[in-house]
């Protein structure tokens, strides 16, 4: 309580005789207007705000604290940082195309210090492939998630905010997309167009938006009824302002949590496509590496195991981060003091 703000507190001037006088002011001694209303001021205003400043800063800071104290989330975060670093450093460490043949085939991991993770059946460096593959996985994962989020946010917020027939139509649309098995839709989309990174990314984004749209819609429906949104309407705010400024910031926590898991599932979908040979043939990805090693599973199992582990750990890391974010941003825990 030694906050300097406390000292700024306006002095409470209270005449005890006046304070307990319920009778109307006497006509012969009219109180000046200022004094009559002097008690309108809230003398504890500063004290209350300093008191709460002491118990906890903003909710964002608190959420960050909770997140940073969560060992699982930190493990996930550290691993993800490693993957990002690998993706960023790949062109520096291995400027050569990872698809080029650099040594004799089937060098086992740990037997040659130049190729710590060995080489594949065509003599390509596995470590170089893993690092470059991280670029593709992350790129597809993040961009596809952004596409899915954007489409899902627009459709979900429109449906949830406006309700009525707009909601009915959009919910039908969401349901139609969701009834199609998403991976088959993905395969069809990629098969129709050329299998390039852009097409794969776009296709993954397209199959993942309905999840976001559903979530955003339900959040918007709940928040739309809150008094501060009703207040915004009563103040004459436009729809766009209400959606973006009033509702969206309050709907964000579950959306953030979901997006980390979406990145993970996008990485899985890309890997699966590449494994099936529907990825970009000119680029190495973790999925295509597994696909290439599939035939040699009995003789050189490391060719599938190493990219497989990369996928498992990355997806796990993203899920751990998602759980950590959920704990940190969940309003149930936000209320604790």
């Amino acid at each position: 309580m030694s906050n300097p703000d406390t000292a700024e507190r306006a002095p409470v001037v209270l005449n005890p005789a006046l304070a307990y006088d319920r009778s109307p002011p006497k006509p012969d001694a009219p109180t000046p207007n200022e004094e009559r209303w002097s008690n309108v001021h809230a003398p504890d205003a500063m004290r209350a705000t300093t008191a709460s400043a002491e118990t906890g800063t903003t909710s964002a800071n608190r959420a960050l604290r909770v997140f940073l104290r969560n060992p699982n989330a930190m493990t996930g975060l550290i691993f993800l940082v490693l993957v990002v670093a690998a993706a960023l450093l790949a062109p520096v460490l291995y400027p050569e195309d990872p698809l080029s043949m650099v040594a004799r085939p089937f060098i086992w991991p740990g037997t040659n210090s130049t190729y710590p993770l060995g080489t594949d059946s065509l003599g390509r460096d596995v470590l170089s492939g893993i690092l470059h593959g991280a670029r593709i996985s992350l790129l597809v994962g993040i961009v596809a998630t952004v596409i899915g989020l954007a489409v899902g946010l627009i459709i979900g917020s429109t449906a949830g905010y406006f309700g009525g027939w707009v909601d009915d139509v959009l919910v039908k649309l969401i349901e139609i997309v969701q009834t199609l098995p998403s991976f088959i839709l993905l395969v069809v989309l990629v098969a129709i167009a050329q299998p390039s990174v852009a097409v794969v990314t776009g296709a993954v984004g397209i199959v993942s938006w309905p999840t976001v749209a559903r979530l955003v819609r339900s959040e918007f429906r709940a928040i739309r009824e809150k008094d501060y949104v009703v207040a915004a309407r009563s103040l004459g705010y436009g729809h766009v302002r209400i959606i973006i400024r009033e509702i969206l910031p309050n709907a964000l926590p579950p959306i953030i949590v979901t997006s980390s898991v979406m990145v993970a599932s996008a990485i899985l979908m890309e890997s699966a496509l590449s494994f099936m040979g529907l990825g970009d043939p000119n680029l190495v990805s973790w999925g295509s590496m597994i696909g290439d090693g599939r035939e040699l599973l009995r003789t050189a199992w490391y060719l599938t195991a190493i990219p497989g582990l990369a996928i498992v750990f990355t997806v796990l890391a993203l899920n751990l981060i998602g759980d950590g974010l959920n704990d940190a941003l969940n309003p149930r825990f936000t209320d604790e003091r």
Binding site: S59, K226, D227, Y228, V230, A231, A232, S234, L235, G236, Y237, G238, R241, R245, E246, P249, N250
Partner: peptide, 29 residues
Amino acid sequence: LQMIFQDPFGSLNPRQNIRDILTAPLVVH
């Protein structure tokens, strides 16, 4: 024609500071 609400905890947007809450109506109008 304005309105004051019952629940002082629900009628203010938790993600906006007081300046934003009070300035927005002026901007809109």
